[in-house]
């Protein structure tokens, strides 16, 4: 609770703490949105692999 109380106090250093947490979770949320959105766009275009395994090789063909 000390931390919550000090938010309303004169400790200016806490600004850095909140910005660090905000930036971290904002950036992670943006990565989720971009990555998942990109997958969805690809699926809408129909560029998806077929569920069967035939033709999927372990190594590159020479």
């Amino acid at each position: 609770m000390n931390l919550v109380n000090s938010l309303t106090g004169d400790d200016g250093d806490l600004w850095y703490l909140w910005v660090a947490f905000d930036i971290t979770f904002l950036v992670l949320a943006i990565e989720i949105a971009i990555t998942v959105g990109s997958n969805r766009r690809q699926r809408r275009r129909g560029h998806v692999v077929q569920p069967h395994t035939r033709g999927s090789t372990l190594t590159e063909k020479p």
Binding site: M1, N2, L3, V4, S6, D11, D13, L14, Y16, L17, A20, F21, T24
Partner: peptide, 28 residues
């Protein structure tokens, strides 16, 4: 994790509360 970082972990004797940045900085 956020609850421990912001509310449960004690305040640092030297740095005060700003040390709590550690909980995102070090794992990153």
């Amino acid at each position: 994790g956020v609850q421990i970082a912001l509310f449960i972990a004690p305040t640092d004797a030297v740095q005060g509360d700003v040390y709590r940045i550690m909980f995102v900085h070090v794992p990153a």
